[in-house]
Amino acid sequence: MDMTQFFIGLGTSRFAMLLADSTHHLQDEASNAPNIDEIGCYVFEGGTGILLNKGVWHDFPMAIDQPVTCITGNSDEVVKALIAMDKPGEMDQGDVFKINLMERLGIEIAVEH
């Protein structure tokens, strides 16, 4: 196990996370992205802790039916990569490979003002 992040749900609120297999061992950027068909949504009970191994794709914990509070821990590599960003966006630094699925899949969401 090469932990890069962990999340612990506090209290009794359930939470969901999107998770996909690690791709850190793959060589090119096209194959480093998760297979959209293999991303799963998992529901965790309050008080549950999740350790993420290196390269595991995830979205941060999401509330389901009531507010949720989570403790988040990051490896030094993750913290340094996030600090180095000038603004939100895609990144490929060490174990932090973040992509914009909406952009990559050509999905547009209409936002009403």
Rank of each mutant, 00 (worst) to 15 (best):
D59I: 05
A20F: 06
L52M: 05
G89R: 07
G9S: 09
M1N: 10
D37F: 02
F6Y: 14
K54E: 14
L82V: 08
T48S: 14
T69G: 04
N53K: 08
L26K: 15
F15A: 08
E90I: 06
F97C: 05
F97S: 06
M85P: 05
I71E: 02
A20P: 09
L52A: 05
T23F: 00
T23P: 02
T69K: 13
Q66R: 15
M17S: 07
M62W: 08
I107A: 06
D95A: 08
T12L: 07
K98R: 13
I8R: 14
K98I: 12
I109V: 15
G11Y: 05
Q27S: 15
D37A: 15
E108T: 12
V68W: 06
E45G: 11
G40L: 11
N32T: 07
M3E: 10
D65S: 12
L105T: 09
G73P: 04
S31A: 15
D65P: 04
I39L: 03
H113R: 09
F6M: 14
P88Q: 11
V68F: 05
K87R: 15
E108S: 13
G40D: 14
Q93S: 13
L105C: 12
I8A: 12
E29I: 13
H24T: 01
T72V: 15
S13P: 04
A84H: 08
P88M: 10
H113K: 12
N74Q: 12
A30P: 00
I39M: 04
L26D: 05
D59S: 12
M85N: 14
L10N: 04
G11I: 02
T48L: 01
M91F: 06
T4W: 01
E77I: 04
Y42Q: 06
L26C: 07
G55A: 08
D28G: 05
I8S: 11
L101A: 14
L10A: 07
H24C: 14
S13W: 01
E90G: 10
A63T: 09
T4G: 08
Q27V: 11
C41Y: 01
T48H: 11
G46Y: 02
V78L: 02
L51T: 09
I50R: 02
V56F: 02
M17E: 09
D28N: 13
I8V: 11
K87T: 11
S22Y: 00
I107K: 07
I99P: 01
D21F: 00
E38C: 06
W57G: 03
N35A: 11
A33R: 15
E29G: 03
I64E: 07
G55L: 03
L10G: 01
A81P: 10
G89E: 03
D76E: 15
V96A: 07
E77T: 01
C70A: 12
T23G: 04
T48R: 07
I99T: 04
